[in-house]
Amino acid sequence: MKIKRGQKRMEELEQELASQYDLHFDNEQLLQEALTQANYLNEHPEVEGNDYQRLEFLGDAVMQQSTAVYLFKRFPDWDEGRLTELRIAMVQTRSFAALSRELHLDRYIRLGRGEELSGARQRDSLLEDIWEAFIGALYLDQGQAVVMRFLEQILFAKIDEGFFEQFVDYKSKLQEYLQKDGPVAIKYQKLSEKPLANNDQIFEVEVMVNQQVLATGQGKSTKAAEKDAARNAYQQLTTSAEKK
């Protein structure tokens, strides 16, 4: 019964992929392997196949290469540094967990009982690995052209939505930029804290270097407002430098 139920769940996933993304796996075993954790196989010796780890290795390389090719073609006027910066943000494994959930891969992972009880199905580190394994499986089954078409739908389209901004550490980037010629004093200072209608609060923070205000930012926490201020300052400084 367990195997039959597992086969039914794979069919459900395949139907979902076909209807939402026009994806069709010829080799269902590859899709199953991408969603199979090692402990599941240990607990089900009757199940043939491998766990996701080899496909994860391949998927990592495919993601790096596919993203680099897309950015190279889309932004012909960007220099190497700017292309690298965006590529790094896009292939941050933290974003892969969000993509796994968007694709509902978390619902179909084959987990060992102990891992299931420990909440591994919602563990970001596992979902990041599963995303890469899924991409590796798709590459082997359908080839690079299909992978690129799929990534244009679910990943590359998010560039214009600002999706990858959340994975950039702008406070560190601003610090590196400001201290490239030597140490400077960087300070974040809260300016205000205002209540919102839904019982949330909005914080406003300014970032200063050597007592000079560079930019302000807002967020629903002091930390979020500091990141927003750092992002505004970094983008203003780098944009100004490019124009010179």
Rank of each mutant, 00 (worst) to 15 (best):
L55C: 03
A18I: 00
V62C: 08
L126Q: 03
S221P: 14
E85N: 02
Q211K: 15
D77V: 03
M148N: 08
F150E: 03
M148F: 06
R87W: 12
Y70K: 13
E12R: 04
I88P: 05
S66D: 00
L191V: 05
T238D: 00
M208F: 03
L191P: 02
W78Y: 14
F156A: 00
I88T: 11
G114R: 10
Q92F: 13
E132K: 08
M90R: 06
D77Y: 09
Y177G: 09
Y188H: 07
Q153G: 08
A89S: 10
D60K: 06
E85L: 00
T216P: 00
R5H: 11
R94T: 01
S240Q: 13
E28P: 03
Q212Y: 10
L196F: 04
L237G: 12
D106V: 06
V91N: 14
A145S: 09
R149W: 08
K4T: 12
D129S: 10
G49D: 12
L174E: 07
Q7L: 15
L83N: 15
N210Y: 04
A233Y: 05
Q122V: 01
K158T: 01
I130R: 00
Q236A: 05
W78E: 12
Q144Y: 14
V147R: 02
Q212H: 07
L58K: 15
A145Y: 02
Q65Y: 06
K220R: 08
K171Q: 13
R123W: 05
F96Q: 04
E116F: 15
K187W: 10
E102T: 15
Y108G: 01
Q53P: 02
G119Y: 01
R5F: 13
K180W: 07
D160C: 04
Y188K: 06
R121C: 12
Q142G: 05
S192F: 14
Q144F: 15
L138M: 14
E206M: 08
L196P: 04
L174W: 06
A34N: 05
Q29R: 03
V207W: 04
G112E: 03
T239H: 08
E102M: 13
G114M: 10
T216S: 01
V209L: 00
D51P: 02
K227L: 06
G112K: 02
